[in-house]
Amino acid sequence: MGVRRRTESLRLRVDPIMCDGYGHCRELAPELVTLDEWGYPILSEQTFVATRKDLIHSAQLAVRGCPRQALWLEQFGPRN
């Protein structure tokens, strides 16, 4: 993880092979995850900057709470 620079942007990602539709991520990060009609997550395509501590916190809860460990937080370099 390391130090996050202010200009970094982040995005919650899912491994669709690992995901089994437990739906914990929807409960833990409702602002980033919606569910399709079969209970699988649809993640927000939108990236968010590292200053959004609330979104980072939600995303980390979802990553930690996934029973299949199908989620991760992807980091991009500075946007230009």
Partner: peptide, 17 residues
Amino acid sequence: ERAAGRTAHSPLSSGRA
């Protein structure tokens, strides 16, 4: 069965969508 495990909304998820 696969794809049958959909979750309903938790009361904690603020009513979006």
